[in-house]
Computed example of a mutant assay.
Amino acid sequence: MAEGFDLGGLRAAVARHGRVARVVVGAVEGSAPRGPGAAMLVWAGGARGTIGGGALEWEAIARARALLAEGGLRVDRRPLGPALGQCCGGSVTLVTEVWDAAALDGIEGPLVARSLDGRPMGLEVRRLLDRARREGARPPAQIRQGWLIEPLALPEREIWIWGAGHVGRALVAVLSPLPDLALTWIDVARDRFPEILPEGPRAIWTPRPEELVAHAPPHAEHLVLTFSHALDLELCHRILSRGAAGLGVIGSATKAARFRGRLRALGHSDGQIAHMVCPIGDKSLGKHPQAIALGVAVGLLGQKRRVGAEIAS
């Protein structure tokens, strides 16, 4: 779940589950597991996201499910030590709201602001909203003059995952809960994906996935791990031709050498081919799909964010 008010994720959850409660950390005093803006969604049969775990989250989920039957909004300030027996010495203000399709109508950015106690919008809040609209300012989530103010969530990185086999599924499971990542997941047919698609990633199936490369944004990062070496090669060829912020391919040293040779034959320079990372993951972790996924995730998170960086074409 992306940091900030994840409008897309909330809409998807409402479309799937109907009424959904959203719990957000509005304010923190002292030490707490998560900071302002951390949020989770709760529905009758499940939840997504986290506000820090432990007794705080367990209690928040119970309150959210009770509120689902009534609708509306509630604000709770919880001292973590005295009230919940947690080691953190601070206190957290939680805002719980019930959302449905009607409530989402008209929500737009760049800031989402709503009154917590019915009071009219104050001058400080109005100034924050005006500055956001004029200058694109994105202040952090906060409670100001009785209003909860959150920036709309904007993913910082787009990850395109090509392949819904064992490693693709493991990668999506590891990456989809992480904030600030937008995942696009592609394969050749619906039955290549899990029966129940995870919330968050955009899943696309088409008999000719290579044709979708032309629709990927130039700043996307690609992970290629399909069932077919021929399709992997064609995807690499098209991604290198189009330009991208990163290209990783599942395989081995032998596969990497063969792909480099074939990509040269297709007209790519050594400089272009050098942007291809193959194999992906951390060899020391082993070849289990989840181990590969963990290695890839650590590598992605360890990279310095490269906004607008493109493979030279």
Results as ranks from 00 to 15, higher is better:
11 R>D: 10
13 A>Q: 01
14 V>G: 08
15 A>S: 05
22 R>T: 12
29 E>K: 02
31 S>T: 11
31 S>W: 05
32 A>P: 02
33 P>Y: 12
35 G>P: 09
37 G>F: 12
37 G>R: 14
38 A>D: 14
49 G>P: 13
52 G>F: 12
58 W>G: 13
62 A>S: 13
73 L>H: 04
73 L>Q: 15
74 R>P: 00
81 G>Q: 15
85 G>K: 11
92 V>E: 03
93 T>P: 04
96 T>F: 04
102 A>I: 06
104 L>K: 07
108 E>Y: 01
109 G>S: 07
109 G>H: 04
109 G>R: 06
112 V>K: 00
119 R>L: 04
124 E>C: 04
125 V>P: 07
127 R>H: 10
133 R>Q: 11
133 R>N: 03
134 R>I: 09
148 L>S: 04
149 I>A: 09
149 I>G: 01
154 L>W: 04
157 R>Y: 03
159 I>L: 15
162 W>P: 13
163 G>D: 10
165 G>L: 12
168 G>E: 04
174 V>D: 03
174 V>S: 12
176 S>A: 15
177 P>A: 14
180 D>S: 15
181 L>G: 04
186 I>S: 02
190 R>N: 12
190 R>G: 09
194 P>V: 14
194 P>K: 15
195 E>M: 11
195 E>R: 13
199 E>N: 10
202 R>E: 15
204 I>F: 07
210 E>N: 09
213 V>K: 05
214 A>T: 07
214 A>C: 06
222 H>N: 11
222 H>M: 04
224 V>E: 09
225 L>R: 03
230 A>T: 06
232 D>C: 10
236 C>N: 08
241 S>V: 02
249 V>G: 11
256 A>E: 08
256 A>G: 08
258 R>T: 10
258 R>G: 10
261 G>K: 07
263 L>R: 06
268 H>L: 10
272 Q>P: 02
273 I>K: 02
273 I>C: 10
278 C>F: 10
278 C>N: 03
278 C>I: 13
280 I>R: 00
280 I>P: 07
292 I>E: 01
299 G>L: 06
301 L>D: 04
305 R>G: 14
308 G>T: 02
313 S>T: 08
